[in-house]
Amino acid sequence: MIEINNISKWYGSFQVLKDCTTKVEKGEVVVVCGPSGSGKSTLIKCVNGLEPFQKGGITVGGISVGDPKTDLPRLRSRIGMVFQNFELFPHMTVTDNICLAQIKVLGRSREEATERALTLLKRVGLEEQAAKYPGQLSGGQQQRVAIARALAMDPITMLFDEPTSALDPEMINEVLDVMVKLATEGMTMMVVTHEMGFARKVANRVIFMDQGEIVEDATKDEFFGSPRSERAQQFLSKILHH
């Protein structure tokens, strides 16, 4: 589904991504972790072309992201993305947030889009908040709306960029529950997160990044059971034992 081949990216002379290669198969859940500044958010933003890269290639569903001939908006509309800071549009109601791209990009009618929005809001447990503005919701609720907004586009894959990092601890689980449900329903997911509990529960593979490199790319059991690299061992011991 997602193929990342030898991606390198520089900010000026600083190299943020060094020759990264990995793959996410259809229906697979891949968790990307690593210390901050390791390039994991940059990598996931390269997947839908929000960040340009200078070397290598990425294809999603067989379509090249870096190719100037690619209709990037169209490709992006099939890739759901959830951000650390939710990024709901504050001047629109929850329903309008979910309807906007359905109407403008997919060409759905307002009725059709609203119906889909309400179905998805029910699925994330927020049907009563449909008429509210994002500012009236808690962080956890906003993030669930953001997930619903991405799902409304019927994506072939979902990208999550630290979806729980900006949340208060008591709200993390309501968001993770939605994500676990998605994963068990077979959604192809690439998730940047520090939530190792989530990784243990639903990940097929775990990618560990450090200083712009993919240091470890292993199945979940391998990664948690016997990480090969010393950096991954150190990272795991730091975040698991405290």
């Binding site: 929000l50 169209r74 992006r76 099939r78 890739i79 800071n85 990024e87 001047h91 990009v105």
Partner: peptide, 25 residues
């Protein structure tokens, strides 16, 4: 800039992102 990213990630093009998301705010 996160708002711009969110608009693009949903598949909106430059004009739609400007008219619907950026300029109103």
């Amino acid at each position: 800039s996160g708002q711009v990213n969110a608009a693009y990630a949903l598949g909106l093009n430059y004009r739609q992102a400007m008219m619907r998301v950026i300029l109103p705010q």
